[in-house]
Design a protein around this nucleic acid. Structure first.
Lengths: 233, 233
DNA sequence: AGCAACGATCCTGTCTACAAGATTGTGCAA
DNA sequence: TTGCACAATCTTGTAGACAGGATCGTTGCT
């Protein structure tokens, strides 16, 4: 069934969607690049209808812009929009922190703590990339513990939109220790099952991230583009 | 062009999408109702492809669920999901209140104030429906003043999902005066250009709405369904 | 030489037909 | 009577073709 003669080299509709999504994420399809249905269909070895469907979904995801009778292109984010997205993420993650404090099981709290320990270790080893990865995992663990499907889904969507904007705020001078302290506060609040404190701590943390981001904004604007990391701090 | 012979009674793709959206909203298409492409195409006087496209969009909007090879049906929300959606809305509207305090022009603030006065008047006249409408307008005005496209878009999406769940919390005993006081606090904070106060006030307001909702939950559960209002308080 | 109208080309939007998958009902056997 | 297998039907998914709109280059006129 895997590579039956019926499908010479083609892929399914879902695969096509994922493929395009990935292509946008990793920059294979750059911002503002035109997305001609026939061309993509040819490249992915699917029919135009499949590509069309995928583009409609991606439009609804906010990754693609379609103008009637004039085709689709990869959405370009302004810096202002990137800030907006981060602000919304901050609001939503604050909610998940609160919910995590309310709903997390002991096992989940243990897992969160372990993740924080990992980050501490990485920082001690001056492994900033590792730290950044740990950071992403910690946030993911908190979101999972929150058991809040709606918030999780929206956050995932926002993350997806921002992938090409993922800056390593961790590289800002003096940021790592501060970041660790903020994360510690969040984890402690959740472990204490104190929703208010958890929410406030997460809020402070993400506000701090935004301002760190502002500091790097000019640097980014300068050599426009290319930070392709998948991790934010 | 209006009713050209080319389109005997058919409607465009966008219209079909809007039509289905409305049909779900006003209950014409009930929760869990099966959405057979051919049937809908026949009813709307469009081809199946158009319906198909609309269903894909509605799926991404969260109004419809599609299972591969097995068709689409109207999404059913559990009570828990409704609460989740309201929680997220609360977080996002708190953000817009903050942004409104920061970004609103004098004219926008005047408009917001005017809206609040309207609500006060309606309440004095015991016009609860009018009050509820005014409430919706006030929130809309605040969102507009916030100039935060990302948040506005997500809130709109969440509102759309919840339409069939829009309860008239305003009907809860003793709620109207409290609601008005909360709104007044929000408006004052925005007018004072105090973002923290605005955010807190909005947060408190929506928390209060959620708890009012909880009180009506049993009543709703009892005679399952039918509140078709478009306004929440 | 500059500008406007026209025409060719490219691309999207829509339609019809066909193939594959899922469900339901029926008949046969235990 | 109950359970299973098979067949008919219904529905989705895909393919290919066509028509309409947009863009761009060319030609003719001023």
């Amino acid at each position: 069934m895997g590579t039956s003669p019926r499908r010479p080299a083609g892929i399914s509709a879902e695969e096509a969607y994922e493929h395009l999504r990935q292509a946008i994420h990793n920059g294979e399809l750059g911002p503002n690049e035109r997305l001609v249905e026939a061309t993509l269909a040819d490249r992915l070895q699917v029919t135009r209808g499949v590509v069309r469907t995928a583009l409609i979904r991606l439009t609804q995801d906010g990754l693609v812009v379609r103008t009637p009778n004039r085709g689709a292109h990869v959405r370009m984010f302004t810096e202002a929009e990137a800030v907006e997205i981060l602000q919304v993420r901050a609001a939503l993650e604050a909610l998940t922190a609160r919910q995590a404090a309310l709903n997390a099981t002991d096992q989940e709290i243990a897992a969160i703590r372990r993740q924080l320990d990992q980050m501490t270790l990485k920082l001690k080893q001056d492994d900033l990339l590792g730290y950044s990865e740990g950071n992403a995992k910690l946030h993911a663990a908190i979101i999972a513990a929150a058991r809040h499907g709606t918030a999780a889904q929206l956050i995932a969507g926002l993350r997806a939109q921002l992938v090409r904007f993922q800056f390593r705020t961790i590289l800002v001078a003096g940021r790592p220790p501060k970041s660790l302290a903020e994360h510690t506060a969040i984890v402690e609040a959740i472990a204490d099952r104190d929703p208010d404190a958890a929410e406030i701590a997460m809020r402070q943390h993400l506000t701090s991230v935004v301002s760190a981001l502002d500091k790097t904004a000019t640097a980014i604007r300068r050599r426009f583009s290319p930070v392709d990391s998948t991790h934010a701090a």
